Simulated scan of single mutants.
Amino acid sequence: MKLARRLILTTTAIAAVTAGTLISATAGQATPTSKPAGANTKAAATPKIPDSLKVPDGHRLTGVFNAKGVQTYTCTDGAWKLLEPAATLSDKKDGSHRPIALHSRGPVWVSTVDGSAVNAAVVATSPKSGTIPELLLESTGTRGTGVFADVSYIQRLKTSGGVAPTTACTGSDQTSVPYSAVYTFYKPAK
């Protein structure tokens, strides 16, 4: 029953995000080598990155995408705890916004263009007032040969919203809070 409710919640959240207006996005490379599938390399500059979230040397920027979605929280022992994110990452190509990936629990990012995927774990956080923290994540595994193949690090930057409610909760209540962010993807430099 809980799995069915979670699947319905995630599907509903992703459908709501997809039906809404997607934020414009850019993609680019710090050292141009080859254009990754689905990435727009006519990029704007990446957001300012706190020192604690900088990617180690030896990795190159391969994609920068804007995300819009929700952070879903569930009531656990009377307090709101993060259950999962649900977001759509998009890019801007030929003047239109197109979905590039879906982001969900894991955390995982799955390309809607080529099916490639990356899972990651948080290695550093940078708190921001009034919004969810910015993050540095390290890949724990990838699959496929597309845009997310061989991704080594991910940054969540320019966060807005998504903060858990401060109100009390009871039982198995759940709530979804809208958020937006910029996700940057890095691969080992060759």
Rank of each mutant, 00 (worst) to 15 (best):
T11V: 00
L83A: 14
A120S: 12
V113R: 03
G144L: 02
G28C: 09
G130T: 06
L83H: 15
P85M: 10
Q174Y: 10
A101L: 06
S96E: 15
L89H: 09
Y183C: 11
A37T: 14
S34I: 04
K2I: 09
P107Q: 01
R156C: 09
A101E: 07
H97L: 13
K190Y: 06
Y73G: 02
G63I: 02
K42P: 05
T62C: 04
W109F: 01
K54N: 12
L83V: 02
D91K: 12
F185C: 02
G69E: 00
P127V: 09
L82D: 03
F185D: 04
T167L: 03
R60D: 14
P85C: 05
K93Q: 14
T62E: 11
T33S: 04
S152F: 09
H97D: 14
D77M: 00
T18D: 15
K68D: 00
G130R: 08
V122S: 09
R98T: 15
I8C: 05
A39M: 11
D94H: 15
V147I: 12
A43W: 06
D150P: 09
L135E: 04
C75D: 01
V118H: 05
S96R: 14
G20W: 13
E134I: 00
G115I: 04
F65Y: 12
A124G: 02
G144Q: 07
S129A: 15
Y73M: 01
T175N: 03
P178Y: 08
T145N: 14
I23H: 11
P127Q: 10
R143G: 11
R6E: 08
S96F: 09
K48G: 04
R60M: 06
T31D: 10
Y73A: 01
P188H: 08
P165H: 10
T76N: 09
F65A: 02
T140G: 07
A37N: 11
A25C: 11
L9F: 01
V122P: 06
A39K: 08
F185S: 05
G162A: 03
W80T: 08
L136S: 02
Y186P: 01
T62N: 06
